[in-house]
């Protein structure tokens, strides 16, 4: 492989990985934007999404086969389930805490994360489940650069989901309400917006996206277990911060940026791949020092 081939292959790797990060980062950023909560249970919703998808896929595989139709069906079902799970968590754990100090709700989020991951651990005995769909390794070969069709489908579906969300937030009434609540909840209440319902909707959408990413990861990587949400939760949080937490476009950009950073970080000359995380998190620190609001975040002016 020439170094140009390596460059393009790593570019492809980074974009694929980045679209996962972006999908999960969106949920982080939406929830933060609307109620200023770092929802640490978000990575676990991704994990639950993978398990629910696995369950549905095993149920429908007799009916539809482990084909793209089956995968699509189980992805939609998993998105609905995880969306509702997100709303339930918001209703039970977060809503009573909304007026409490920010730290209390943050700790509640950590607790929810533990309940979810340990719950799934108890249900699955902590085993790895093989998510085998055998989608084949066929793909496009351009010189030495190789991209499978599965990878293309994944990136395209992630892009479609993000585009839909983007239009929903910018072009619809509910999207406008969300943006308004992010600015001033009390004013929204006075204008007759049902704030609780819109917050619930935000949780639904954010969680559903995490569920979709979970199913996609299960199908693509082929193995799921109860702890899989931890690492990606951390990475997606990083992506959201890089992009500017609270900004939708920032989350998408931050996800792709982190994916690319990691892919090229593996390739740093003279040092091993174990340095890739040092590289990407080092850049995160630099960014936070010189531009704490992230790439697309807005500087908030607090009035006294």
């Amino acid at each position: 492989m020439s170094s140009l081939d390596i460059f393009f292959q790593q570019l492809a790797n980074g974009l694929i990985l980045g679209s996962f990060y972006a999908l999960v980062a969106l949920g982080y950023t939406m929830v933060y934007g609307i109620i200023k909560l770092l929802n640490f249970a978000h990575g676990d919703l991704y994990m639950c999404g993978a398990f629910v998808g696995f369950l549905f896929l095993s149920l429908v595989s007799g009916l539809l086969g482990e084909s793209w139709t089956g995968i699509l069906c189980s992805m939609v079902l998993s998105m609905l389930t995880i969306g509702l799970l997100g709303v339930l968590i918001q209703r039970v754990a977060y809503r009573p805490m909304l007026s409490a100090p920010r730290l209390s709700i943050l700790i509640t989020a950590l607790a929810v994360s533990m309940v979810l991951s340990n719950g799934v651990m108890a249900l699955t005995d902590g085993d790895y489940e093989a998510f085998n769909t055998d989608l084949g390794f066929e793909g496009l070969e351009m010189g030495n650069v190789f991209i499978t069709y599965t990878q293309i489908v994944l990136v395209v579906s992630a892009a479609l989901l993000m585009l839909t969300l983007f239009f929903f937030i910018n072009r619809t009434m509910y999207g406008k309400a969300m943006r308004a609540i992010a600015i001033d909840q009390d004013a929204c209440r006075l204008m007759g917006i049902n704030v609780n319902r819109v917050i619930a909707l935000t949780f639904f959408i954010g969680s559903a996206l995490a569920g979709a990413a979970g199913v996609m990861a299960g199908v693509y990587y082929g193995s799921i277990h109860f702890f899989m949400g931890f690492v990606i939760g951390l990475k997606a949080f990083t992506a959201a911060v890089i992009g500017g937490i609270g900004s939708i476009r920032g989350a998408m950009l931050g996800g792709l940026a982190l994916g690319l950073l990691e892919a090229f970080g593996t390739q740093i000359p003279f040092v091993g791949s174990e340095w890739k995380d040092v590289f990407s998190f080092g850049i995160l620190i630099l960014l936070l020092v010189f531009k704490p609001t992230g790439l697309l975040g807005k500087t908030e002016i607090e009035r006294m």
């Binding site: 492989m1 081939d5 390596i6 292959q9 790593q10 790797n13 980074g14 694929i16 990985l17 996962f20 990861a217 990587y221 193995s223 702890f227 899989m228 931890f230 690492v231 990606i232 990691e262 892919a263 090229f264 970080g265 593996t266 390739q267 091993g272 791949s273 174990e274 890739k276 995380d277």
Partner: peptide, 23 residues
């Protein structure tokens, strides 16, 4: 190549590319 993989990470594509380039 003498490489290390982080526990629990799922995407190893960039590492795979690096290893493959060493033939």
């Amino acid at each position: 190549a003498y490489e290390v993989v982080n526990k629990g990470e799922q995407d190893h594509s960039s590492l795979v590319t690096r290893i493959k380039s060493k033939a």
